[in-house]
Nucleic acid binder design. Sequence first.
DNA 1: CCGGCGATTGTCT
DNA 2: GACAATCGCCGGC
Length: 189
Amino acid sequence: VKRLDLEGPPDEVARALLGSFLATKDVVARIVDVEAYGAADDEASHAYRGQRMANRSMFGPAGHLYVYVSYGIHRCANVVCRPEGEAAAVLVRGAVVVEGVAAASARRGRALIAGRLDGPGRLCQGLGIELGSDGCDLLEEDSPVRLLPGALEPAEHVVAAPRIGLTKEVDRPWRFAVFAHSSRPRPSR
DNA sequence: CCGGCGATTGTCT
DNA sequence: GACAATCGCCGGC
């Protein structure tokens, strides 16, 4: 993954992230479900009302991690995709663990189904992504969370759908999920 | 399999 | 004081 690939319109970067890997100390997972978020042009985005203390890392630089607290309980992880001063990011909604299934399921407190971490909160819990990693550089070798290159396979396709859990901009089709040619062309959950 | 709902707390008004 | 880029459980079909 090069930083240049991560800097661009959030929907394009979102698609490009599918098939790449998120890695922490003891878990590696392949990204299969993402959502794009913009800035002043996107009322559903955390950046819509400008920079705040909690969302500051969403304002760049690209390739850094934006972690926020959802519903006071969960953590959710984003890949920032704009240079410093501008805001946009890709929420990682789902991934398949390819290394460290035991560590991930131990953190989750339950067995994973087919190695899947579906849902942004579950994904962060399984990977062990904490608020303390907010703002770290995903392309830096010794970061607590890293992004590793990966691509989709020929039999894999991408479906676009509306984003989940919003009260605004509910129709913008900025969710992108991988599905195998043999399975139903619809994102899980 | 699917829809509904309560829990729970950081963040902003 | 309201709201939230969620989750897990429960009930119905």
